[in-house]
């Protein structure tokens, strides 16, 4: 190459102007009323954002800041004047003049029922947030009676006719835990079908599409094609599905093993944020440490580089620290 143009490497390059970043899109403000209080939010805000902006804590299960709202759990429903049905706060946008009630009897009933319906059909023992909501709304899932016997292989269920309920007992999604790899387990008896894992595996994060919802109705379930083991599927073990799972249905195998052994103790755990030691992306890792061992790795949602999503190395590639 010709070097006659090369700048003098020994002299520092002078400071330039500050980068010009695109200005934030100007957004009109929308005035609405929530629980009798006037609220002003930028156009395009959801009712959930509006409620949060004035400190109203709206429960959510299928919503997460780093995923597209799917509004399927319906626990965030609120009452909007003029609307026949309750509306999901997570996805409904504020419109001028909306009058919203977030804690009416109707709202509380639906929220309580959502919790009762789920808790009577799903094992929510490893879902602390869910249990907190149960207390808040006075949910009593036992109202629906004893759990029915597990329905057999849910993965073989056909859409359409089902067997009549046995003794009117409460059907559940109980089923054996799927353990087909050394990194994480899938305990779909704890799955509330919030779709978050599917979203994280899909366009919202990983773009791997290893899992989707299969089946229909009460037998709808998260599945690979033909329930193929993960090791035959498209799974790349990023564990972003674990990161978004609200009930512990998807769990690090390390946590699963410790819980089975009775050694998992969150009161003894500390957390520290650091940066992944592998590639140059710079994902923040939250290391969960118990007894001087890393037991779990997550990533904060507000971390702007990958919004809480990681890859297999960041999520699982730390065992050597424990094994040293």
């Amino acid at each position: 190459m010709s070097t006659q143009n090369a700048p003098d490497m020994k002299t520092p390059v002078p400071r330039g102007p500050l980068p010009i970043l695109p200005p934030p899109r100007p957004r009109r403000m929308v005035e609405i009323s929530i629980d009798g209080k006037a609220v002003s939010v930028p156009e395009g805000s959801t009712l959930l954002q509006a409620a949060r902006s004035i400190g109203i804590d709206t429960p959510t299960l299928c919503f997460l800041e780093n995923l597209t709202p799917v509004n399927v759990c319906r626990i965030c429903v609120v009452e909007v004047e003029g609307s026949r049905m309750l509306v999901p706060a997570c996805s409904r946008q504020a419109e001028p003049g909306m009058v919203v009630k977030t804690d009416s009897e109707r709202v509380r009933l639906s929220r309580r029922l959502v919790l009762e319906l789920l808790a009577s059909s799903v094992d929510v023992s490893t879902a602390p947030q869910f249990q907190e909501y149960m207390k808040r709304y006075g949910a009593q899932p036992e109202r629906f009676g004893d759990a029915a016997r597990p329905a057999g292989n849910r993965d073989a269920a056909q859409p359409g006719h089902h067997h009549a309920p046995e003794n009117g007992n409460a059907a559940t999604v109980a089923q054996p835990v799927k353990i087909d790899n050394d990194l994480y387990v899938r305990d779909y008896g704890k799955c509330i079908l919030c779709y978050k894992c599917v979203e994280a595996c899909g366009v919202d994060a990983q773009n791997t599409f290893a899992i989707a919802v299969a089946g229909r109705g009460f037998t709808a379930r998260i599945s690979t094609e033909y329930d193929a083991p993960l090791t035959d599927s498209a799974c790349v073990y990023c564990g972003n599905c674990i990161g978004v799972c609200p009930t512990g249905a998807l769990m690090f195998k390390s946590e699963y093993v410790m819980r089975r052994a009775g050694t998992w103790d969150e009161s003894k755990q500390t957390r520290a944020d650091t940066i992944c030691p592998y590639c140059g992306v710079g994902c923040t890792l939250t290391l969960q440490v118990q007894d001087e061992k890393i037991v779990k790795v997550t990533s904060p949602l507000d971390q702007q580089i990958t919004n809480g999503h990681l890859c297999i190395k960041g999520r699982f590639g730390w065992e050597w620290v424990n094994k040293k």
């Binding site: 650091t274 030691p277 710079g282 290391l287 001087e292 890393i294 580089i305």
Partner: peptide, 24 residues
Amino acid sequence: AGWCESEGTVTNSERRVQRVRRAL
């Protein structure tokens, strides 16, 4: 291990200087 047993900083691909922290 610099990323989990030490305090300090690293710089990623987008020249972002980030803190690493001692977790254990």
